[in-house]
């Protein structure tokens, strides 16, 4: 059986974000806004994160989700959106790389 959100759709990050919001949880939404090379998830993909670090969805094949979840905690506390960049050769800003050789830009914002 498929996992379902309360709204009845198969697990869908934006539907789940609405459910979480209704439950009174803090929610951060991360979105892939640009990709270069072979990125694992297409532009527009979402990862949502709550105040306890629970998450749903994906912005990569699992390589950078940990870093996005960590950054989401800061976004939730100060409410300021952040633009994160991940890539194989990008050692200046981030140590987490994409093993597939691509680069992605992820926008992280607070819901509300």
């Amino acid at each position: 059986m498929l996992d379902q959100t309360q709204s009845g759709e198969p697990l869908d990050p934006l539907m789940a974000a609405e459910d979480w919001m209704k439950e009174g949880r803090d929610v951060a939404i991360a979105t892939v806004v640009e990709t270069w090379g072979s990125a694992p998830r297409p532009v527009g993909s979402h990862l949502i994160i709550d105040g306890e670090g629970h998450f749903e969805g994906s912005v990569s094949g699992g390589c950078v989700e940990g870093a996005v979840v960590a950054e989401a905690a800061d976004v939730l506390s100060d409410g300021k959106p952040r633009m994160l960049e991940f890539g194989v050769a990008d050692e200046t800003a981030w140590q987490v790389g994409l093993s597939c050789g691509g680069r992605i830009k992820v926008y992280v914002e607070r819901l509300g």
Binding site: S7, M15, I29, E109, L111, G112
Partner: peptide
């Protein structure tokens, strides 16, 4: 993201 925008977006997707 504006919660109202999220609700409206999801409503469109359901419909």
């Amino acid at each position: 993201m504006d919660p109202y925008a999220l609700k409206k977006l999801n409503q469109c997707r359901r419909e």
